[in-house]
Design a protein around this nucleic acid. Structure first.
Length: 567
RNA sequence: CGGGGCGUAGCUCAGCUUGGUAGAGCGCUUGCUUCGGGAGCAAGAGGUCGCAGGUUCAAAUCCUGUCGCCCCGACCA
C-alpha cells in the first residue's frame, strides 16, 4: 500500500475527551473516529488491526473445532420473552419497533437466537456436542460509555455457544475454549491472566475471565503471591479464616461517642483497632423490609456477594437512610448488632472477633466489650466482604495482591438455564428427551485492540506486535523531491517486499523526515526502513525496529531485510 | 439513573465576569527558502458561537428551555 493513497489523518495534539492512552493514541493516529457516545468508526488504518485480531480469533476458534455462523444483530422480542430476559435486561438493551409496531432489540448477546436455531436443526444426541460462534457487532446501551473502545456501546465481539449431553462434555469444551483463548491472547501479544469470575446476570455456574493487565483496567484482580489463585475482585472468596473466636473477657459497656459516626472516627476516639470493631450496613430485603449486614470495621461489603444472599434484594440496594433511622431509632452512625431490630446476617470475619466495639443503636453511643452469643445471638455467617490486599489467599497459599485488568474474554458454563427456558431438547440413545448443557464464550475483539495499546506503547505512540500490526514494514524514503535515486530505490524495495508477500507500506507522501518519522512512531508499524542518499552511497538501508533504541544499517538487499524480519 | 462540568474554525482552546468589530495555536491552500526527528517567511481559505425561545437599540456574552458530549458512582466483552 502506498501511503499517498491511503487515508491517514494524524494529529499532534491529544483530543481533550480522551482519558486513557489507548483512546488518545487511537484518535491521534487516526485509527478511529467518534460518531457519538460510545460509537466509533474504524478508519482504514485501524480496521486493519481489528481485522488481524479478528482473524487470529477466527483461526483459533476454527482450530478448536468451533463452526462460524452469523446471526442478525436485530432480534425479535419473542425470543427474549421466551427466555424470560425481555423484562430482566433493563435499559442496557436497546429496544426498537419496526413499522408493524413489533418489538425487537439490537442484540446485546445471542444466547436466545442460538438456542432458537439449535432447536430447529438439532434433534439427536448424535449431533452433540457442537460449538457455534460468530464475530459480530453488539450493542449495549451502557450507563456510561467511556475510555473509547474500552467501553463502547457498539463493539465487535466474538461469541461462541456450545451444547452438550452432559456436564462432563461441557467441562471438556470449556477447557478446550480456555486453551484456545490462551493461544489467542498469546498471539496478539497480550500479557494476560485468567481469573475466576462472577457470572453476573448471564447466569450459570463456572466462569473465568481473561484479563489483560494494565493500570488503566477497570477491574481489580485479586491474585495470590504464589500465583496459585486469581479472581476478579467481585468473585474473590473470603472464607472463614479458621481462627477460633476468643472468649469474652470484657463486660459490655456503653460509652459516649458524641459525633463519632464512622468506624475510623470511633476507632480513633476510643483508641481501639479498626479490626476490633463490628459495623452494620443495612440493605433492602428481597421480600421488602430491611436486612442488617455485620462486617468487621476495616472490611467493605461486596455487593455482588450480598445480592446472592436469599434475604437480600437482587440487584443489591442499600436501604434508604430514613427507613434505617425509623427501624433502629438512631442515626446510621451508631448501628450495632446488639438488639438489632431487623434480620441480621454477618460476614465470617465479623464473627471471629471477641470483645468488639460496635454502635449501641442509640445516638452518640457505642458499646465496648461486645461479644457474640453473650450480648446478641450469633447470626449466620456468610462470605459477604470484599477481599483485601494482604489477606491470606482463599486457597491457603500465599497472600493476596491486587492488579488492574481489562476484561478481554469471558468463558461460562451456563448449564441448562437457556436450553430449559427455551425448551430445547434432544433425544438420547434411549429415545428420551434430554435438555442439553450449554456453555458460552465471549471475546471483546474491538476492546482487545485498545487493551493491547494500553500494554504496548511509549511516549511516541503505539508499538504493535507483528501479528496484529496494521502493516508489517514501513518504507521511508528521505528527500524524494531531490533524489530520483532514493525515490526509485524505495519504489523498488517496496515492490520487492510486496512480491515477497510482506505486508509493506510505502510512505510516498514526500513529507520532510520529521513528520514522516513522527507518524511512523505514532502508528507503530513494527519494522521501519529508511532509504536516503547517505545509505545508498554505502549500498545500505537503515533498519529500525519500533521501540528499539537506535537504528542500524543493513545491506541494501531484500534477503538481508527478510532476515531481519525473521528475528 | 444520581452528582459535577463543557458545547466558539477540521483539531486544541481564549473571548463571556462588566452585552457593542469573531480571536490565537495547530492543521489546510499558494509562493519562496529549507530538508535525517512534527521548519521559516509571506499571502490566503475557513465559524448561522449546539439548538429554540426571551430580555435589549444591540446577545458568543444575560435569562429560560432543550439537545449533545465529557468526568465521578452501581454493570460488562
Amino acid at each position: 500500500m502506498r501511503l499517498s493513497r491511503f487515508p491517514l489523518a494524524t494529529t499532534k495534539e491529544t483530543p481533550a475527551d480522551a482519558e486513557v492512552v489507548s483512546h488518545q493514541l487511537l484518535l491521534r493516529a487516526g485509527f478511529i473516529r467518534k460518531l457519538g457516545a460510545g460509537l466509533y468508526t474504524w478508519m482504514p488504518m485501524g480496521l486493519r488491526v481489528l481485522r488481524r485480531i479478528e482473524n487470529i480469533v477466527r483461526e483459533e476458534m476454527d482450530r478448536a473445532g468451533a463452526a462460524e455462523l452469523l446471526m442478525p444483530s436485530i432480534q425479535p422480542a419473542e425470543l427474549w420473552q421466551q427466555s424470560g430476559r425481555w423484562n430482566v435486561m433493563g435499559a442496557e438493551m436497546l429496544r426498537i419497533k419496526d413499522r408493524h409496531e413489533n418489538d425487537y432489540c439490537y442484540g446485546p448477546t445471542h444466547e436466545e437466537v442460538i438456542v432458537h436455531h439449535a432447536k430447529q436443526d438439532v434433534r439427536s444426541y448424535r449431533q452433540l456436542p457442537f460449538n457455534w460462534y460468530q464475530v459480530q457487532t453488539k450493542f449495549r446501551d451502557e450507563r456510561r460509555p467511556r475510555f473509547g473502545l474500552m467501553r463502547a456501546r457498539e463493539f465487535l465481539m466474538k461469541d461462541a455457544y456450545s451444547f452438550h449431553m452432559d456436564a462432563a462434555s461441557l467441562e471438556d469444551e470449556y477447557q478446550n475454549m480456555r486453551r484456545a483463548y490462551a493461544r489467542i491472547f498469546e498471539r496478539i501479544g497480550a500479557d494476560f491472566r485468567i481469573v475466576q469470575a462472577d457470572s453476573g446476570n448471564i447466569g450459570g455456574a463456572k466462569s473465568e475471565e481473561f484479563h489483560i493487565l494494565a493500570g488503566s483496567g477497570e477491574d481489580l484482580l485479586a491474585v495470590s503471591t504464589v500465583g496459585s489463585y486469581a479472581a476478579n475482585m467481585e468473585a474473590a472468596a473470603c472464607p472463614p479464616s479458621g481462627k477460633v473466636r476468643g472468649p469474652a473477657t470484657q463486660a459490655l459497656e456503653q460509652v459516649s461517642t458524641p459525633g463519632q459516626k464512622t468506624c475510623e472516627q470511633v476507632s480513633k476516639f476510643l483508641n481501639v483497632a479498626l479490626t476490633a470493631k463490628v459495623k452494620l450496613l443495612v440493605a433492602k430485603g428481597r421480600q421488602g423490609g430491611l436486612v442488617a449486614i455485620a462486617l468487621r470495621g476495616d472490611h467493605e461489603l461486596n455487593e455482588v456477594k450480598a445480592a446472592k444472599h436469599p434475604l437480600i434484594a437482587s440487584p443489591f440496594e442499600m436501604a434508604r437512610i430514613e427507613d434505617v433511622q425509623a427501624a433502629f431509632g438512631c442515626e446510621v452512625g451508631y448501628l450495632g448488632p446488639v438488639k438489632c431490630p431487623v434480620p441480621l446476617i454477618a460476614d465470617h470475619a465479623a464473627l471471629e472477633i471477641a470483645d468488639f466495639v460496635c454502635g449501641a443503636n442509640v445516638n452518640d453511643a457505642h458499646f465496648k466489650g461486645a461479644n457474640w452469643e453473650r450480648d446478641c445471638p450469633i447470626p449466620e455467617g456468610f462470605d459477604l466482604r470484599r477481599i483485601c490486599e494482604g489477606d491470606a489467599s482463599p486457597d491457603g497459599q500465599g497472600e493476596i495482591r491486587f492488579f488492574r485488568g481489562i476484561e478481554g474474554g469471558h468463558i461460562f458454563q451456563l448449564g441448562r438455564k437457556y436450553t430449559e427456558a427455551m425448551d430445547f431438547t434432544v433425544l438420547d440413545e434411549q429415545g428420551q428427551a434430554v435438555t442439553p448443557e450449554m456453555g458460552c464464550y465471549g471475546i471483546g475483539v474491538s476492546r482487545l485492540a485498545a487493551a493491547v495499546i494500553e500494554q504496548r506503547h511509549d511516549k511516541d505512540g503505539m508499538r504493535w506486535p507483528d501479528a496484529i500490526a496494521p502493516f508489517r514494514v514501513l518504507v521511508c524514503p528521505i528527500g524524494t523531491d531531490k533524489s530520483e535515486r532514493v525515490k526509485q530505490a524505495a519504489e523498488q524495495l517496496y515492490q520487492q517486499l510486496v512480491d515477497a508477500g510482506v505486508d509493506a507500506l510505502l510512505d510516498d507522501r514526500g513529507l520532510r523526515p520529521g513528520p514522516m518519522f513522527a507518524d511512523a512512531d505514532l502508528v507503530g508499524i513494527p519494522h521501519r526502513l529508511v532509504i536516503g542518499e547517505k545509505g545508498l552511497n554505502a549500498d545500505q538501508y537503515e533498519y529500525k525496529r519500533r521501540g528499539a533504541d537506535k537504528a542500524d544499517m543493513i545491506p541494501a538487499r531484500l534477503e538481508a531485510l527478510l532476515e531481519r524480519l525473521r528475528t
